[in-house]
């Protein structure tokens, strides 16, 4: 055909291919870069990240009691352990645990009686029972997740059931009777 006759000119085919490949590669890079802001826009926005710290008044929580509050839109359990519960937690050999941690590692210095954890089961994210009054605390006296039967002990450590890890301990400071979480 006439076009092909036109094409059979003195043009160097290697230079031509090179330019075309370069143009296509640049287009691919451009498309890739454009995807970044689109994906990034789905990350938490600045207002979500800046959500304020949560303050918990500890003075109203008697030993043996626990309260449920919220931190970054997640449930937060604050529990005042009794000496018996602390002793029960300390009595467990750490090496026998699925996620080995001592109660001391999971509480603030000099405040071992304050067990502050997220109320999010590490299995699939249900809220375990045990923080509310009269709720089932499970076989280990800590928390019990009714969804799939994970049981946590008085240090919030996983002892039985499918959950892989202990209940998460958020960053917090205790100033007098106020715990500042976050």
């Amino acid at each position: 055909m006439a076009i092909e006759a036109d094409l059979a000119g003195p043009e160097n085919p290697r230079r031509r291919d090179y330019l075309q490949y370069a143009a296509v590669s640049v287009a691919a890079v451009g498309a890739g870069v454009v995807v970044l802001p689109l994906v990034n826009s789905m990350n938490p926005s600045a207002d979500v990240l800046a959500q304020s710290t949560t303050e918990v008044d500890l003075s109203k929580i008697e030993p043996g009691m626990a309260i449920k509050t919220s931190f970054r839109k997640q449930p937060l359990f604050v529990r005042n352990l009794t000496p018996a519960e602390i002793a029960a937690a300390d009595a467990v050999p750490v090496s026998s645990l699925r996620d080995p941690q001592t109660l001391e590692q999971r509480t603030a210095k000099d405040h071992t009686n304050w067990l502050i954890t997220l109320g999010v089961c590490t299995h699939l994210g249900c809220v375990p029972l045990g923080a509310g009054e009269g709720e089932n605390r499970g076989p280990f006296g800590g928390y019990f997740c009714p969804c799939h039967g994970s049981a946590y002990d008085t240090a919030g450590r996983i002892r039985q059931g499918p959950a892989p890890k202990n209940l998460e301990v958020p960053k917090y400071n205790i100033n007098g009777a106020i715990a500042v979480v976050g």
Binding site: D6, A8, G9, E11, R15, R16, Q20
Partner: peptide, 11 residues
């Protein structure tokens, strides 16, 4: 450049 090279020789 790519456009020119593709069309090179085609009137």
């Amino acid at each position: 450049g790519a456009y020119r090279s593709v069309w090179a020789g085609v009137k």
